[in-house]
């Protein structure tokens, strides 16, 4: 569903990604782990088009999308829930969710009707969001904002979802809840690329995993293979 081939990207003169390649099959949850600064988030940004890759290809459902605007890629079926959640603070929770489905809703009126089914699904997944539907999302706690960010990405009914550091800055209890959600989404058949600093937890939900080091993929394999790999074990799984 998503294929990344020899991707190069960076900020200004410094190249962060130096030939990253990976693939995410339909219905699979793929984890991308690695040290801080290895280029995980940059990979996500280069895939979704927030950062324009300088070289390489990104195929979404067989279609080359590298170099397109992020908004165009999003409308083609890629939902990227960014690091740091990036909810639209001044807007209400419900507005945030509706904007998640922006690409396929009528732009003026009657948009809520078109998204009601998805709204109900997200509220069912995160009942706390329903309680706070009218509240400005900037006033939510970190955990609630993370749920909103995931919910917002789901609203798009994406072909592939990128989820960047969903556990960042959250209390352990909330992190567990986030992972429960991911597991449930997996059962529902989501195609997901997950970047996560808690490598262990990430491997527990993943079907396949990549380990990044200095801008490229160093090791890949099934979670079991990685757990048996001594180097990965020592470096990331403690």
């Amino acid at each position: 569903m998503l294929i990344v081939d020899d991707l190069h990207a960076g900020y200004g003169a410094s190249e962060v990604l130096v030939g990253t390649s990976l693939a995410v099959k339909q219905g699979a949850v793929v984890a991308l782990i690695g040290a801080n600064g290895a280029g995980k988030t940059t990979t996500m940004r280069a895939i979704s088009g927030v950062l324009r890759p300088s070289h390489g290809r990104v195929l979404l459902d067989g279609k080359e999308v590298q170099g397109l605007d992020a908004s165009r890629i999003a409308r083609l079926g890629l939902a990227h829930s960014p690091e740091g959640r990036k909810v639209f603070g001044p807007l209400s929770v419900e507005d945030n969710l509706l904007l998640g489905a922006y690409g396929r809703l009528p732009k003026f009126l009657g948009f809520k009707a078109g998204a009601q089914a998805d709204l109900d699904r997200v509220y069912e997944l995160f009942p706390r969001l329903k309680d706070r539907a009218r509240q400005a999302s900037g006033t939510l706690s970190g955990g609630e904002q993370q749920m909103l960010a995931i919910g917002r990405a789901l609203m798009a009914r994406p072909k592939v979802m990128l989820l960047d550091e969903p556990s960042m800055g959250l209390a352990p209890v909330i992190v567990q809840e986030v992972f429960r959600t991911i597991r449930r989404l997996k059962e529902e058949g989501i195609t997901l690329l997950l970047v996560e600093q808690f490598a262990k937890s990430a491997l527990e939900v993943a079907d396949h995993a990549y380990v990044m080091e200095r801008g490229r993929i160093a090791v890949e394999g099934t979670p079991d293979e990685l757990r048996r790999n001594e180097r990965v074990l020592a470096a990331y799984l403690g």
Binding site: S48, G49, V50, D69, A70, S71, R72, A74, R75, A79, H80, S81, P82, K86, V87, F88, G89, P90, L91, D95, L98, L99, G100, Y102, G103, L105, P106, K107, F108, L109, F111, R152, A156
Partner: peptide, 27 residues
């Protein structure tokens, strides 16, 4: 406040990159 396009307008003003990720063209 009442149209989705208008909300998109507010979204771009809150966070341009995140809005792009929702499929909203900032340009």
């Amino acid at each position: 406040r009442r149209t989705l396009l208008g909300k998109a307008f507010e979204a771009v003003s809150a966070d341009r990159d995140a809005a792009e990720l929702m499929g909203i063209s900032a340009t």
